[in-house]
Computed example of a mutant assay.
Amino acid sequence: MHVPDGFLDLTTSVATGVASAAVVAVALRRAREEVAESTAAAPMAGLVAAFVFAVQMLNFPVGVGTSGHLMGGALAAVLVGPWTGLLAVTVVVVLQALLFADGGITALGTNVLLIAVVTVAVGYAVARGVMALLPKRPASAVPAAAVGALVSVPATSLVFVLLYAVGGAAPLDLGQLTAFMLTWHVAIGAGEAVITALTVGAVVATRPDLVRLVRRYRTSLVVTGADGTSREVVAGASEGPVTAGVRRIGLGWVAGALGVIVVLAGLVSSVASANPDGLEYVAERLGFLDAAEDSVVAGSPVGDYAVLGIDNPVLATGLAGLLGVVVVLAVMLLVARLAAGRRSGPRPRTAESERV
Rank of each mutant, 00 (worst) to 15 (best):
F180P: 00
P135C: 10
P171K: 05
H185D: 14
S140V: 05
V153A: 02
V151T: 08
S157W: 09
R128Y: 04
A121D: 15
A132Q: 09
V166C: 03
R137N: 01
A155Q: 11
V118R: 02
P143K: 14
T196N: 03
A149D: 02
A141N: 13
W184G: 14
L163W: 11
V153M: 06
L163R: 02
M181A: 06
A197I: 07
M131I: 05
T183V: 08
V120K: 15
T183I: 00
G123R: 12
F160N: 01
E192Q: 00
S140D: 03
L198T: 15
V118Y: 08
Q176T: 09
G168N: 15
V120A: 05
L174K: 13
L162H: 04
A155W: 08
I195W: 11
V118D: 01
V166L: 15
D173W: 06
L172T: 14
A132C: 09
A179T: 10
H185R: 09
L172N: 08
L177T: 03
A169D: 08
G123N: 15
M181F: 04
Y164K: 04
L163K: 00
V151M: 10
V142G: 12
T196L: 12
E192P: 02
K136T: 01
V186A: 00
S140Y: 05
L198F: 11
A170E: 14
R128A: 12
T178Y: 04
T178D: 10
G191M: 07
